[in-house]
Design a protein around this nucleic acid. Structure first.
Lengths: 132, 132
DNA sequence: ATAACTCCTGTAGTAACTACAGGATCAAGT
DNA sequence: ACTTGATCCTGTAGTTACTACAGGAGTTAT
């Protein structure tokens, strides 16, 4: 059983974040030492690592929590997992599309923007354009 | 001079958001009618529309504010505008790259995830994988 | 013994809004 | 004149997922 700092090091989840997950009920309350300090098992650290990976993959915390629960269920409901993951993939793809449109719009805006102008063409377009 | 609801309609910026921008000093305080209601000029609406476009383009509000101020200066500093815009383009591009990597990782994770499994391969990988 | 470290609780701050609560005022219809 | 519904006001709290203290207590190393 290790202290919170070591659990943080081993899982990659910040100390404050671990306590936050506990407050929010994302992870169960860990054991406590006699001096009231939190004590984490290897299992607890595994949970934190799992959450870290989900968050790194961009899943919202609510999804990460759901995946963790699915992962701890007796029979893992693969379909639910896949549904969550595919919804997330779709949202990632639509974000990519959106950002690509943005990138193009921005590139066009800056194309004529040379220093030395008194009237900046980019600002002018921003003032007058109708839609992005 | 129009009321806040009409300014909201004409600019596309929500009523609460307009008041928020006022509180935050992003836009100047508008005139007030005798009954204390806010009154917006065409100029005020123009400012809101400008901010809306910047936000739609993904500029953080602080950048949107800076661009608005540049846009209202006597000589528009095109170089400052371009710098802001190019930094933003760079951040958009890096977000796109990140999301692409994410998309690939997610696609791989779900590839073997067929319903009916008792052990979900995606969850297993999430439990054991080292890095995303 | 003292310094430096880690831990505790609890609160507040971040970005950019959004959603009320509780009340005042206004416009339109009867 | 009166009522109904829309709009407006201020002020506060909630959202997401943390992050950063403040102020105190216990632990470890020299």
């Amino acid at each position: 059983m290790i202290a919170i700092g070591e659990a943080s090091r081993q899982s990659g989840v910040g100390i404050e974040t671990i306590r936050y997950y506990e407050r929010e009920g994302i992870v169960p309350r860990p054991a406590r030492a006699l001096n009231n300090r939190r004590l984490y098992s290897a299992n607890d650290v595994g949970r934190l690592r799992f959450l870290k990976k989900c968050r790194d993959l961009g899943f919202p915390l609510s999804d990460a929590k759901a995946l963790l629960e699915l992962s701890e269920g007796s029979t893992e409901d693969c379909r639910s997992v896949k549904e969550l993951a595919e919804a997330h993939i779709a949202s990632v793809r639509s974000k990519i599309d959106e950002l690509r449109r943005l990138e193009r719009a921005l590139s066009e805006l800056t194309a004529n923007c040379d220093s030395g102008n008194v009237q900046c063409p980019m600002l002018q377009r921003l003032r007058t354009m109708d839609e992005i």
